[in-house]
């Protein structure tokens, strides 16, 4: 199976056709729902919360956040205008921003109770078209994520690293930003294995 991350930047890969294909595929929808529900479970939010969805795409995860019990309010950021156009068509409740997580998240300190990201952060490991290297993009992302979460905030990022080296590079960037970080693997040793990076602010991580 080829990884889209190896071929094109996400804003070009998720063009109108791919965005619609992605969103209407029932297989994608069901995997996305499973992963979002798992991320929510790991966030363990006891009350209606304000959540940032990083790489929100067409809002598949966001809908689950809106309909959760208790229901949450979310803001989604994505680099693909085509994906966001599909989200608008689907009339999701969350607010949407076009942005590149590798440039840093433009929110003030302590904005969000929590953040989720489903199948997105491995894109940070690609050099962008301006030649900005992955290390810089990762640290901009994690530093800004750390800052925009509340002091007891939490983030769960499901991601698909290309290999162990890439996985470690992502984890160490998170820890360097100050997060307490844990990795969780669902269905290990299968082709459906899913990796979750669980990040806590003010956790055991030390800068």
């Amino acid at each position: 199976m080829s990884r889209p991350e190896d071929n094109l930047p996400p804003d070009l890969y998720y063009n109108d056709t791919e965005s619609r294909k992605y969103t209407t595929s029932s297989r994608v929808q069901s995997i996305q729902a499973t992963m979002t529900n798992r991320a929510l479970e790991l966030l363990d939010l006891t009350t209606s919360s304000f959540i940032l969805d990083i790489g929100c795409g067409s809002g598949l995860s966001g809908e689950i956040l809106s309909e959760a019990e208790p229901p949450h309010t979310w803001i989604g950021v994505d680099i693909s205008p085509s994906m966001l156009a599909v989200a608008l068509d689907r009339e999701v409740d969350g607010d949407l921003l076009l942005g590149d997580m590798g440039q840093g998240l433009p929110f003030r300190a302590g904005s969000f109770d929590a953040a989720i990201s489903i199948s997105a952060i491995q894109w940070l490991c690609n050099e962008d078209e301006k030649g900005v290297d992955p290390k810089t993009r990762l640290s901009r992302f994690f530093d800004s994520l750390y800052a925009c979460l509340k002091r007891d905030g939490k983030a769960v990022c499901q991601f698909y690293p290309r290999d162990d080296k890439q996985r470690d590079m992502i984890c160490s960037a998170a820890i360097k930003a100050g997060f307490g970080a844990g990795l969780l693997e669902d269905d290990p040793e299968t082709k459906n294995k899913k990796l979750y990076l669980v990040l806590t602010v003010g956790g055991e991580g030390n800068k």
Binding site: V77, I79, L97, L98, G99, D100, Q103, P106
Partner: peptide, 14 residues
Amino acid sequence: HQTVANFLLPSHLG
């Protein structure tokens, strides 16, 4: 545009 704010920065600013 269509409720979506564009926060993509041009390279000299990002």
